[in-house]
Write a protein that binds this DNA or RNA. Structure first.
Lengths: 113, 113
DNA sequence: TCAATATTTCAAATATTCATGAAATATGGA
DNA sequence: TCCATATTTCATGAATATTTGAAATATTGA
């Protein structure tokens, strides 16, 4: 995937900076390739559908999620390529001369998976 | 370091969702252990000192940066432990049953360093 | 102690974000 | 075609964030 612009990155961070959206995003990260239907996300997080829809639109605009119609439902998925770009943007050049600082960081992220 | 709460995570993302703060944070990530003085950050990003100061306070509250007085200057540093926790929070359980999806992600992040 | 430097804090005006109710759109089945 | 289901879009008011000028704090050196 392409590198993010600074504006793409701030959009993504803004999208993740709201509790409901962060919860929804983590739900989709955990659901993986199966995705979760719009209504199921709202039910799971106990909010109205239109509130959830407005918030999903923010995640969608930030390209952190994708969606796909399946019959009457619309199923959302986390977009891992964007997450990857975002992390790359944040960490860019973090090791300029100090790989000893960076290596344990990578190690720990790997463990979170 | 401790695991982040959802509130810590949204605070951190909110802090990174503003262009000036994201630029400042990346500057500190790249500067590493040397850090950058408050005035130098403002000068480098071409904003007034009090505007920069208010924005650094947001990064500080989110624990994404630390600071330390050195003579007349106050020097800021990126806090890598918080970044690590934040990435862990985002990626938690992302591989529930699908390590094949997660491994290339980790690989790519490692390359960004 | 006095003045200069480096930075933060405060209060205010402006701009942005958020949840909501109501209306609109799209799909599937009788 | 008609109705129910699933979801989004729109307009609005309330809450929150952002920048700014002015004033305050802390440090250094003469």
């Amino acid at each position: 995937m392409d590198a993010l612009t600074a504006s793409d990155a701030t959009d993504a961070f803004a999208a993740l900076s709201q509790p409901l959206r962060l919860q929804a995003y983590r739900l989709l990260v955990q659901a993986g390739a199966e995705g979760v239907a719009a209504g199921a996300i709202a039910a799971r997080l106990d909010v109205r559908q239109n509130t959830m829809s407005a918030n999903m639109a923010v995640l969608l605009h930030a390209k952190l999620v994708r969606r796909e119609r399946r019959g009457r439902s619309i199923v959302y998925f986390a977009d891992f390529a964007t997450m990857q770009s975002l992390l790359g943007f944040m960490l860019e050049d973090c090791c300029g001369g100090r790989p000893d600082l960076c290596q344990p960081l990578i190690q720990e992220i790997a463990c979170a998976c």
